[in-house]
Amino acid sequence: MGIVNATPDSFSDGGLFLDPDAGLDHALALVAAGADILDIGGESSRPGAQPVSEADEIARVVPLISRVRARTSVPISIDTVKPAVARAAVLAGASIWNDITALSAPGAPETAAELGCEVILMHMQGEPRTMQADPRYGDVVAEVCEFLLARARVAMAAGVARDRIWLDPGIGFGKTLEHNLALLAALDQITALGFPVLLGASRKSFLARLDPAARDPAHRLGGSLAAALVGALAGAACVRVHDVAETVQALRVWEATR
């Protein structure tokens, strides 16, 4: 899954692809590099990020999704927490709803069922503005698994088909370095829940905690590739990444050795 952030403030590439033409060029480049899915978002979820209005978010993502859909058949995911944005994105050509709040907004599960799109349910403790203040867990792996299963049941109760549901442990979302490493080490327990799992660890700040020289997100390629391979070994169905070509190459080498 290649990342296309149509935002001015994303932690790694904010402002680079806010213009629809720039976003389109980037999306097509990711497809050429081997992306199987494009994840387009119009609201940053980095720690401390400020909310974006529904109208502004739609204005950022819908023109880009329409242009991308006209140029490629690769599935498009809309990264949003707002049902109205998801609806507008699906009408424009998206077929996956990637929700960091696991369909927690009022009416979100019912909207997902009505749209018939695939949904990605992610775990997050708190919300982006405060999630990294002081995250605490008794057993982070057990609690994340319990939350994801509960949200999957809510989605299915609203009418979302079981085979349309993905799970995401939410690396970096309300978690310390130790929490992130515990989830990566136990990722096979999440894949064992019986749903396809998306892993998003690309360029995240926990990598700089392991390598202080990687303060710039663009300097975290090695750690991002290592995390992607950990995900592949644990059975993750997809990895969400900024560096598509390099990740595809790493996964091809790993796959060739199996």
Rank of each mutant, 00 (worst) to 15 (best):
S53I: 10
G42Y: 01
D56V: 12
R71I: 00
L64G: 02
V52K: 09
R67H: 10
A105Q: 10
L30F: 03
A32D: 06
A133N: 12
V31N: 08
A22P: 00
A142F: 06
V85P: 12
V31S: 07
M122R: 13
Q132P: 06
A112P: 09
A84K: 15
V141C: 01
S45N: 06
E114S: 15
P47V: 05
E118T: 00
G34D: 05
V144R: 10
L38Y: 12
A102N: 13
S95M: 00
V74R: 09
F147A: 12
N98I: 05
L30M: 07
A35N: 04
H26N: 01
P47R: 06
A113Y: 07
I78G: 08
A102P: 08
A89D: 07
G42C: 01
V31P: 06
R87A: 15
S73Y: 03
G93L: 09
L28P: 00
I37H: 01
A49W: 11
A55M: 07
A35L: 05
G138M: 03
P109S: 01
L18A: 02
R151E: 14
D19F: 04
V90T: 14
V81F: 15
I58Y: 04
A55T: 09
A59F: 13
A32W: 01
E143A: 11
A108C: 12
E57Y: 11
V52D: 13
I96G: 00
P128L: 12
E114A: 15
R69C: 04
L115F: 03
D25L: 01
G34A: 03
F17A: 04
C117H: 02
C117L: 02
R87K: 14
R129K: 15
Q132H: 14
S95W: 04
V62D: 09
V31D: 07
L30S: 05
A113N: 04
P128D: 12
K82I: 13
G34V: 03
I100Y: 10
A113Q: 10
R136C: 02
T101V: 10
I78W: 04
D56R: 13
E143G: 03
D99Q: 12
A29K: 00
A102S: 14
D139I: 05
L115M: 10
E110Y: 06
S77E: 02
G93N: 08
P63I: 05
L38F: 13
A94F: 00
A32I: 01
A105I: 03
A108S: 14
F147L: 11
G107H: 08
A133R: 13
C145N: 11
F147Y: 14
A29C: 02
P128Y: 11
E57K: 03
A35C: 03
A70Y: 01
Q50I: 07
M131H: 05
S66T: 15
G93I: 09
D36H: 15
A86H: 13
A89H: 13
V140L: 09
D25W: 02
D139H: 13
C145H: 05
T101K: 14
L28T: 03
A113S: 15
P20N: 04
E43T: 10
G93C: 06
V52L: 09
M131V: 10
G48R: 07
I37W: 08
P20D: 03
D39P: 06
G107V: 11
E54T: 15
E127D: 12
R69G: 00
